[in-house]
Design a binder for these strands. Sequence first.
DNA 1: GTATGTGCAAACTTTTTGCACTTCG
DNA 2: CGAAGTGCAAAAAGTTTGCACATAC
Lengths: 139, 139
Amino acid sequence: MRPKEIKNSLQEKGLKITPQRIVILEAIHRLENHPTAESIIGYIKKAHPNIATGTVYKILNVLVENDLIKRVTTERDIMRYDAVLENHHHLYDKKSDAIRDYFDGELDKLLMSYFEKKKIPNFRIEDIVLEIKGRFKKQ
Amino acid sequence: MRPKEIKNSLQEKGLKITPQRIVILEAIHRLENHPTAESIIGYIKKAHPNIATGTVYKILNVLVENDLIKRVTTERDIMRYDAVLENHHHLYDKKSDAIRDYFDGELDKLLMSYFEKKKIPNFRIEDIVLEIKGRFKKQ
DNA sequence: GTATGTGCAAACTTTTTGCACTTCG
DNA sequence: CGAAGTGCAAAAAGTTTGCACATAC
């Protein structure tokens, strides 16, 4: 994602374009493996030591509320963030805390047709994300 | 789950049977909607006001480590627990914080056969849980 | 009796909040 | 210029830890 696109995405949501927001969005796009607030702060402070921790948290909440980033579901009590907005799934390593993205359009179609036939009573599905848990093999 | 079964499940794991552990296991089985530590503590303290908060957290960790309960994945920084051990999926309400269980053996078979054909490179799948996000309809 | 578990309070970690100051548009 | 955003420090929220005492087996 280029700087121009980041600025546009903020503007489209009616958010002011500030250096802090740009830097945080860039960091989440750059950092692999669904960073925590802590790792985003660590990464950013190298280049921008004056940015405040509280500001990072506030901005992360604003970005989530405006659908510019997503929170990743985990079993832990720490929040992690994802810059990928297209529909995708997550691979969770059972031993390490690694989480990787998994894209599979064929699977998405399969699920869509499955749930078109089989409705869940009293529930309107908007979105399905698979938590695929297992182990990464050393390559 | 009857008291006898709870005791057996602790015993099978080589854990000592204590009143605190029994009460906590009962609470998680009884409380709907995947309770937080806080709601478990609140529920328990009504009948057992002397049980310590720290003890509840320690016991929850022991129970998770011994596969007697599971942590539920959420986007929030609060841990929630699940007493249901059989394979199942979760329905997340986008507006409230409600999470309901969803059982679907047909879906499980479909996914199993799908991933038997289509392997994920460098990953060994152990378990698949669907996060089905949407809205509960008022009935 | 001894290993294991509990109660309590303090510490720690992560996130939120309030308010004066600053900046974007 | 005014609304929105930031920095800072304090507070809140959630969880863990250490240690003396208690209990299960």
